[in-house]
Nucleic acid binder design. Structure first.
Lengths: 110, 110
DNA sequence: CAGTCTATTCGCAATATTGCGAAAACGCAA
DNA sequence: TTGCGTTTTCGCAATATTGCGAATAGACTG
């Protein structure tokens, strides 16, 4: 539903992890991108979960926040990188939630 | 430092709260704006705190994330409403933090 | 199969945020 | 007071995000 692409059919062993090591080991720049991608994925999934929990279609949620279904769909796309606080707050508001933002220290280690 | 305006000199009693009641009681729309304003204020203050904790000037932090001091100043302005995830992440990254986002249920009561 | 509802993708206009330099204001110490 | 570093404000160009319709795809039912 979310992850619109990357439908890799279950890899033989843990090739994914091997690939991960090969590509990202000791490369902070790439790692950072990876982290961001994961964060975006998480946001997308969370929006979709909240909407589902409220038993709303994309169209219904869209109307609640004054936009269209295609916009909601874009937000729920795991590959979407344009999430904004403003939009997250609109979604949250319509679903009786609020957006909490925290800065948490990161452990820089291996 | 942060709150660039609204330097009301300590009110007589709790006039602030009285004013609050008069203006916002039972008015969700206004309340929502108020909440957003508070959230923005909090973000601004947090950025300023993180920067101070790292012992950086606005110019120094600006260079770390590839922008200028005026941009940092704008972010630390309590009245600024344009905070974006992208920018918060850049700040966090430069300060060895990560941005955590959570949707938390809101209590709709008096 | 057709019909219906939902979700997804695309393109472009509209709005919002960022980039950035310059000038002014501030705080502090000599 | 002057000088110096920092912060704040302003204006506008550049980039990013949103708005939105239309077309397509998927899932499900009769």
């Amino acid at each position: 539903m979310s992850d619109n692409k990357a439908k890799t059919l279950k890899p033989t062993s843990d090739a994914v992890e091997i690939l991960h090591r090969r590509l990202y080991e000791g490369k902070p720049a790439r790692l950072k991108n990876l982290e961001e991608a994961r964060a975006n994925e998480e946001i997308a999934r969370k929006i979709q979960e909240l909407r589902a929990a409220a038993a709303l279609t994309q169209t219904q949620l869209a109307k609640l926040i004054g936009t269209t279904a295609s916009v909601i769909c874009r937000l729920e796309d795991a590959d979407y990188e344009g999430h904004s606080l403003a939009m997250l707050r609109r979604i949250a508001g319509a679903l009786n939630q609020r957006v909490e933002i925290r800065f948490v220290p990161i452990r820089r280690s291996a």
